[in-house]
Design a protein around this nucleic acid. Structure first.
Lengths: 329, 329
DNA sequence: CTGAAAGCGCTTACAG
DNA sequence: CTGAAAGCGCTTACAG
């Protein structure tokens, strides 16, 4: 492995001068620079980043914790974060928790061990004092969905408004029995702004929520399929419209409608959430709440980098959702 | 920032002993261990990984280069790689090229600068001597699709067989004009085993390929839509079946069929490639070539780690594709 | 079982 | 414009 002293030996300059040339320091003669860069090329020398870090204290690595990398919402978010970070000279490390206990902890350790300059978390299980301290220090930035302590700053869309508008749209169209399908757990539903937005719309139309129309912990395409079957089992009390907090689950429901010869939107209107690429190619096209993923990703990356570099924070953009109407409503 | 000397001061033991306790070295008294671990907890001390690396020469980071993180094929591959690597104590760094020149080069530099222990590449533009050397040294492992130098070891499915079987299936069903739609560029098609498999099937049925039925550089849903329109423009010479080397593009074609009221599979039979989650929820369900992504991901990770740790290579699994028949054929 | 000291490959304040 | 030396936070061979 060639190292800086090899370049020094080859050129006759000191290690100090080689280092300065590499780091674009002024006060290195052009003659020296040329000789040094030539030697570096010949030796195929690249400075050992680890040694540089030990001095400079920066890894130029930002961790991004997501639950599943196979979820398109997260890949689009990561994509936006990556593009912004890359331009600023940072590299993203995608860390998936798989919703397994222990993984999150391990990733936070990576931060504490200085493997990472900062950590962007799209979910947060552990809100222990140490983690809160890291958030305060700007080492951790939380974005997207966090349903815990309300004092923690979180970058997110106006979630309540998003579901309020979607439910309102259905109600205004005359649908009366609107089911709510979410990946969220029972225990956390009371803190969930998306659920609150749905409730508010119902309230404005003087409709009482029917607990039988609440379907929780529905995460996958398969869950979507079984959710439709659960709904049909309600007989006369079955919903006439479905607000699903995930395009993935919505696509399972819609697909199952084809299997069972149920007409959409005649028998069931369906609204999804996210506007993933799939929504557009489904048949009929899936009406869904589009999230400003790119804007959110860019902004959260900017905030993270400002913290790392001790710069002033960028101005917050408006993170506005939009109901995209297609064929399922 | 608390460091090892802080722990030493607090416990009264030497730095050496602290280090040994951390690294589970034998010959540290239980009494010392207890005192040290307690102090570590109290101080919220975590060893600086960067300093450890400078001694140990390992970052425990493996880079994975993909073109787009928003492509489900890659996320599933990354998922499988990640799971295997995580178990072995490695963390994955997902690097997307966005097919932009320069990014790949930058990522290879990360390897040379020792930011990464190894690099898994799912595509490879730069086959310069230095890169070939890194491949030989086992620092870089190539998997999936690489259409260049035939002497480079690549971990991949039997691509020729995969498309041969798909095309054969269509021909055996009586389809005569089979279009071939690929994301590949014109200039690389002659090295593309998938294309060769298609040709071979045609040959066995004594059918000459029609150049008008060859659609290249088709990468996105939108490309799929326009491809269908291009086909319709062929009038009498339009294909009766379509072999698409991407579920994404296939979903664009299928969706556009709905828009234009074209019956599938009556007027067009369609076969995709990958068996992405979307394939199952399309209407009708998309017939497609399933790739053994998990097995491939696991295996490529195992090979990478064996190289890094100078262990003997794992046995290669059979990477068998399978034609999954649904409603579009 | 424990510790002093060298060294990993760099950067940077200090001196010239 | 250039260089000798200290030091970043660890690990490990050597000595006890």
């Amino acid at each position: 492995m060639t190292k800086i002293s090899d370049v020094a030996k080859k050129t006759g300059y000191s290690i100090t001068t080689i280092s300065r040339a590499i780091n674009d320091h002024p006060y290195v003669s052009d003659k020296a620079k040329k000789k040094i860069f030539d030697a570096m090329r010949e030796l195929d020398y690249y400075p050992n980043n680890v040694a540089q870090q030990l001095r400079g204290k920066r890894t130029k690595l930002i961790g991004v914790i997501i639950s599943f990398i196979t979820n398109p919402f997260f890949t689009h978010l990561v994509d936006a974060i990556d593009k912004t970070a890359f331009q600023a000279g940072y590299q993203i490390v995608v860390l998936q928790t798989l919703e397994e206990a222990g993984r999150e902890k391990k990733f936070i350790e990576m931060l504490k061990k200085h493997q990472l300059d900062g950590l962007i978390m799209t979910s947060l299980d552990d809100d222990s004092p140490e983690v809160l301290k890291l958030i305060e220090q700007g080492k951790i930035v939380v974005c997207n969905r966090y349903l815990g302590d309300q004092n923690i700053p979180v970058i997110r869309i106006d979630e309540k408004k998003a579901t309020y508008e979607a439910a309102y749209y259905l109600l205004a169209k005359g649908y009366k029995k609107i089911a709510y399908v979410s990946g969220n757990k029972q225990s956390r539903i009371h803190n969930d702004s998306r659920f609150l937005g749905y409730l508010q719309a119902l309230k404005e139309f003087n409709i009482e929520m029917d607990l039988a129309h609440l379907f929780l912990s529905r995460l996958s395409v398969t869950d979507g399929r079984s959710t439709l079957i659960d709904m049909l089992a309600l007989g006369d009390n079955r919903p006439d419209a479905i607000l699903v907090i995930s395009d993935e689950v919505a696509s399972g429901i819609l697909s199952q409608c084809h299997v069972l010869n149920i007409r959409v939107p005649d028998q069931f209107a369906i609204i999804g959430f996210d506007d993933q690429p799939t929504a557009e190619v489904m048949y009929p096209g899936l009406t869904t709440v589009r999230q400003p993923i790119k804007e959110m990703g860019r902004y959260v990356a900017e905030v993270m980098i400002s913290h790392i570099e001790h710069k002033s924070l960028p101005q917050a953009p408006e993170l506005t959702t939009k109901l995209v109407i297609r064929g399922t409503t």
